[in-house]
Write a protein that binds this DNA or RNA. Structure first.
Lengths: 340, 340
DNA sequence: ATTAGCACTCATATTTACTGAGTGCTAATC
DNA sequence: GATTAGCACTCAGTAAATATGAGTGCTAAT
């Protein structure tokens, strides 16, 4: 169990290190106003903290830096979560609202905003359209053999794909098909669309059966394409200002990792479903993020569950401020109404 | 005027430097099979080439490196452009065709392919939709006050935007409006759409005039949004393997520049309209590309003018190979038919 | 015109010594 | 018993001192 003073010292070391990125020595600490002990006393406590694995030294004659365990302790015990500053939240809400009623634009803005506030990199995952329900499907002919399949969901999300038919489309057949699809499939979650179309088709015989089936098959293959959820990156540049990323060895893996959209999406989707979750250094299990910490949170927009937002900084990140800003942003998003 | 031998030496220096990224000395050159002169002779010629500004030395006791003027000379006189290897082009065409009939996917693939072939970074600008002509416009209601404006062009390109009305939409008014818009505007280039709608509206009075005008205004503001042409980046990672980008000072400006989508688009659009164009170092007038050269080309797809593709490498890039691959790719694209 | 020879230059690597911020331990002090 | 002063020790980082060697330009011989 930590004594009051040890706690004070641990906190001071981490706060100091977060600011300076330099190992913190006992003499530096003893000069602080809130630590009126001699450097020797502090050294003794530091030795204890090191025995507990909370801090460590890069080499014999250096000061101490927090270990991952130390950060963990700091985050769990010394950072107060979820203090919503009403005025601030309102202010952020205003900045978001100013932008758009289009949810995708809004998410992008939120990601940018969060990275501006913290100077870390942010990643936001938009809603997974697989959960959206079909509002309408349509096939717009471009010329006699090409057309665009349009799928609009209840959330205003649009997917489209160009299709090419073997032979010229018969206008009445197209109309018939589309009406049929709309009648039967309205309200179907996009994820089930492909399956449902197959189901419906087998239930039915029509006049131009052969052409009809071909068309259905085409549409079916089209809607089956898994469109990845939209992904937004904010403040990628910020990484360049972090002292721990001033060498290629550290910078390169990070940049390569963050540019890999697909992997990034998978990662965000695999995160535990919580309000605000902090994952420190090796905890997040990604080699490229060994020296990073991540603050993630699911967010809701206009009341509905929506997606995930993550903030990525060095392990030496300002957890207090980061957690607070993340809280404000998701609160601001929750309160944002999509319609004016 | 350069002597035969000087030409040989210049070529050798550049070829060598392109490979090794190290200054080339006279002794190294004299050991080459194609240069059977003593190092002293070569030194004399090198001095002449330096007087002409074609090569330079980083410092007194180093070998020579090509100057920008040297590269320019090399590109203009020593690189044979446009040698299409039929088999190779066919092969590339196959690799592209395998991917899709969707033009946007195809362009992305072409960018990736080109960067794979050369190990440089590529940027491809898709067609500017402003030139596309309206095939159909539609408004799909989501609920009584929200709807999605859909714009489909003759090229199968789709734009959409969610709009929110002040009051519930009257179905017949919507239908009337949309029919009106389609009748009058089919075939209008997207870029002129906003203006044309305003024009049409002022020509017309309708029953529910007030609501109608409001709706039109909304649609007008929607179609007026300048959607940037689609931009694809290939092989961004490749830069990490270039020896001249192993320090943050050189790497950072490049990465920051290449991540700025909007600026990148403007730049590509501003490039001179040619088949294959090489721009060396400071020639391209962009600070972040001081140490880079760019091979650009407009490309056509399925016969139609389409967009621009660019390949970015260090000034010390393999111009011969780069130009050749660029030629192959745009040729392969030209021959690609969009429909199966 | 070409080449051998040589003095000279200068980036780079290696060695060496020095500095100073930090530690751990011990003995004195509160 | 807890705190602190004192001191020997460690070690990264810097700076100066010293090779090393790849390259040059010039001159005189071929």
């Amino acid at each position: 169990m930590l004594t009051e003073r040890q706690l004070l010292i641990l906190r001071a070391i981490i706060d100091d290190y977060i600011q300076t990125a330099q190992p913190v020595g006992s003499r530096t600490l003893s000069k602080r106003d809130d630590l009126s002990f001699s450097s020797a006393t502090i050294r003794n406590d530091m030795a204890d903290l090191e025995d507990l694995g909370l801090i460590e030294k890069p080499h014999t004659s250096a000061g101490r830096i927090p270990s991952e365990i130390g950060y963990r302790y700091y985050v769990d015990h010394l950072v107060e979560t979820k203090i919503i500053d009403e005025r601030e939240t309102y202010h952020l809400g205003e900045r978001l609202r100013a932008s758009a009623q289009e949810s995708e634009v809004l998410i992008r803005q939120a990601a940018d905003l969060l990275s501006d506030l913290t100077n870390y990199t942010t990643v936001a995952l938009g809603p997974n359209s697989q959960m959206n329900r079909l509002a309408r499907i349509d096939l717009m002919p471009l010329d006699e053999r090409r057309g665009v399949v349009l799928i609009v969901t209840d959330q205003g999300h649009v997917e489209h794909r160009t299709v090419v038919f073997e032979s010229p489309m018969a206008p009445d057949l197209v109309e018939q098909t589309i009406r049929f699809l709309n009648d039967r499939l309205k309200g179907t979650p996009l994820g089930q669309l492909k399956f449902r179309i197959g189901e419906e088709v087998s239930n039915l015989r029509l006049a131009h059966q052969e052409q009809f089936e071909f068309m259905m098959q085409l549409i079916q293959s089209t809607v089956g394409v898994q469109h990845p959820a939209s992904l937004y990156l904010g403040g990628k540049k910020n990484i360049f200002n972090q002292p721990e990323f001033q060498t290629l060895d550290t910078l390169r893996p990070f940049l390569e990792w963050i540019d890999e959209q697909e992997r990034l999406t998978d990662w965000l989707e695999s995160l535990p479903n919580r309000e605000i979750y902090v994952s420190i250094g090796s905890e997040n299990g990604i080699v490229a993020l060994q020296n990073c910490s991540v603050i993630t949170s699911d967010y809701t927009l206009d009341g509905q569950t929506f997606g995930t937002i993550a903030m990525i900084g060095p392990t030496r990140m300002d957890y207090r401020h980061g957690v607070q800003m993340m809280g404000q942003i998701i609160e601001a998003l929750r309160r944002t109404k999509l319609e004016e």
